[in-house]
Simulated assay, not measured.
Amino acid sequence: MSVEGGGDVAGRVTLQTIADRVGVSRMTVSNAFSKPDQLSAALRARILAAADELGYVGPDPAARALAKGTTGTIGIVLTSSLRYAFTDQVATGFLGAIAEQLAPTGLAITLLTSWDSGAIVPARDLAMDGALIYSCDPTSSVVDILSRRKLPLVYVDQDPVPEYSSVNVDDRAGARAAAQHLVDLGHREIGLLLSGLHGPFGIVDPTRIPLDAHASRQRMLGWQDALRPAGITPVAARQDGKDLESARRGARLLLDRPDRPTAILCFSDVIAHGVLQIAAELGIRVPDDLSVAGFDDNPLAARVTPALTTVRQDIEAKGRAAAAALTTAIAQSRVGGTVTPQHILLPTDLVIRDSTAPFRR
């Protein structure tokens, strides 16, 4: 069989079979599938109708990829399990924007985990034209594998590196605005609730806690930008996961104590939701007794009661920018040119809703 799937194999429909039926060349049939702009609409319709009648679904994808030197697929490496892509509203919004941006290109998406699962390592074994590295541990063996494969890469919510394009939101400015909002409301006893998969669970020293992700570090810096000049030393807690149950456990660390803070800055809206739930269970009124601020402005923020004050990041813009940067890098690499890295920083905005109020003695 030829690389276009049109060789002569007994009993098998090939490009030549269709060409003979329509009365055109094999190359014309091939163009009907791979270069439709080379044919008139009427001729392409005749060829596709004949293919359908003969039960031919198209050239073999693996053979076509071998011939073209491309796979038509990009990878997206996630920080956690693949379930995260379908349950976290920020992740689903980000992935949806990527899919929409890529739709006109015909590129397909393969989701990969950053965990090395042993003998089978998709980042090493799957063919792809490039990959997005989304909020992953930079020391992950999976990230190292993709780098050594010399694939076009784009880092998202990661520390920028000179050789690859990156897309980030201005986490530090957003966190600073949220913290300053609480300071301006008169709060001085402020708690921080952090997210993380690695490191200690419990009350931690905010000046010494190891932060394993770009966004965590930038948001901590932003909070401290506002709290330190006000002479505020926050009490910080670190939860042991990213889901709502983890957030509830983390919230208890700050709220179920005699010197509980009057306001809490949360790493995400999901975490802030956990704080709202535990506050209600403990009889703490938000915002009368406690102010709560989140981060992301995902759809949850406006639906909970009270509606969350939060920092908005444009998830759609982030997804579109990441996809565009990767397709540009792939196009540059295909022509053998130098890939020019892009470093994109998207703005954030403070959205004030009902979960924050002036400090009341």
Rank of each mutant, 00 (worst) to 15 (best):
D171E: 13
D171W: 03
R172H: 10
R172S: 11
R172K: 13
A173W: 03
A173Q: 12
A173F: 03
A173C: 06
A173N: 10
A175E: 01
A175C: 09
A175W: 05
A175I: 08
R176N: 09
A177Q: 09
A178D: 00
A179R: 09
A179K: 05
Q180F: 09
Q180T: 00
H181A: 08
H181S: 01
H181W: 11
L182M: 14
V183I: 14
V183Q: 00
V183P: 01
D184V: 10
D184Y: 10
G186K: 11
G186F: 05
G186Q: 06
G186M: 07
H187Y: 08
R188I: 00
R188S: 07
I190Q: 10
I190F: 08
I190K: 11
G191W: 07
G191A: 09
L192V: 13
L192M: 13
L193S: 04
L193A: 04
L194Y: 06
L194Q: 07
S195F: 01
G196H: 01
H198L: 01
H198Q: 14
G199T: 06
G199C: 05
P200R: 12
F201H: 12
F201W: 03
I203R: 05
I203L: 15
I203T: 14
I203F: 03
I203M: 05
D205I: 03
D205Y: 04
D205F: 04
P206C: 04
P206Q: 01
P206F: 00
P206N: 01
T207S: 14
R208V: 09
R208W: 02
